[in-house]
């Protein structure tokens, strides 16, 4: 069933948390639980969301949750899914909710193992593009050029020197039943992907871009605007992989200049025209690869 904003429940299952003002990750968690519902068990590795929600005695999730170890999310999900199967528990959604570092760096092995095993869970990577919980250190999902506390900028340094790893393609390479990219700025797209993931058996992975006012250096009111700009400039794409087929959900004919996105964030303010050129070139290559998947059997 298609989900729309109008028919989402008003009930909040994620409330009173201590995330920063305008937190993109918090939007993802809140919307995810609106679609997935009360019979969700959520596994939270070390991340912003775990550290702003479950500090005794204040518990901000109204569904079952577990605060778990940094590298282990995929494996804990497997154990939980296996127990559900063994006990014949039905209509339970086992959900992993991890940040970018917890997914693409320290958690990648456990996630890969869990996806390969084919256990029944949903895994959401809310991507704020650095280790924000520990104070903005670069991760494997930090974009080229970004300032972080471990990729400083000065006359000689550009900030982060590598491009983001591609989680979507890594998951595709596992021949996963379902994976998708999404953004907090495109809620209808995100909600429908969540609803789809809820219905599909086996592992499902959603990679959701979640702007972070604190780490990216933008006003807390601009979280959604920044998310939209990332998509309109082509620096973030919305796509799905299902039954071996790739679908591109927003396929713009032309992109807005990347400068529109970068100029609004302090983490990019040192970038030069040459950097923009490098980034645009990389963006175009990424889109070429993505579009090449269209219409092809995997």
């Amino acid at each position: 069933m298609a989900v729309s904003i109008k028919n989402l429940p008003d009930q909040e299952l994620f409330y009173g948390h201590k995330a920063c003002q305008g937190c993109g990750g918090a939007i993802v968690a809140r919307l995810a639980l609106k679609v997935l519902g009360e019979r969700t068990c959520i596994v939270l590795p070390a991340s912003c969301i775990s550290s702003v929600t479950t500090i005794y005695p204040q518990m901000s999730f109204l569904v079952n949750s577990l605060t778990s170890s940094f590298p282990a999310t995929g494996a804990v999900l497997s154990g939980m899914a296996a127990a559900c199967k063994a006990q014949g528990l039905k209509d339970v959604t086992v959900l992993g909710f991890a940040g970018d570092g917890g997914t693409i760096d320290i958690g990648l092995q456990a996630l890969s193992g869990a996806v390969e095993r084919g256990d029944d869970f949903i895994y959401i990577c809310y991507d704020n593009e650095a280790y924000m919980n520990t104070g903005v250190q670069r991760s494997g999902l930090t974009p080229y050029g970004a300032w972080t506390t471990t990729t400083p900028t000065n006359n000689n340094a550009v900030g982060e020197k590598k491009f983001k790893k591609n989680l979507f393609e890594i998951m595709m390479a596992h021949r996963i039943p379902y994976c998708a990219t999404a953004s907090v700025a495109y809620p209808n797209d995100l909600l429908n992907k969540l609803a789809k993931a809820k219905e599909i058996q086996g592992p499902k992975v959603l990679h959701v871009q979640a702007p972070c006012p604190t780490g990216w250096g933008h006003g807390p009111e601009k979280t959604v605007e920044i998310g939209k700009l990332a998509v309109r400039t082509g620096l973030w794409y919305l796509a799905e992989y299902e039954n071996g087929q790739v679908t591109i959900n927003t396929n713009p004919k032309e992109f807005k200049p990347v400068k529109d996105y970068f100029s609004k964030q302090k983490r990019f303010r040192h970038l030069t025209e040459e950097d923009f050129r490098i980034i645009e070139e990389h963006r175009d290559t990424e889109w070429k690869i993505l579009r090449n998947y269209l219409g092809k059997d995997e």
Partner: peptide
Amino acid sequence: WIFCPDGVISKENPQLEIDYDYCKGCGI
């Protein structure tokens, strides 16, 4: 309502209502 990171806006009554106890004032 959909974008509020804190979920403080309520839609169940005819008019939207804000729970000021939990609104952090982000301005989204």
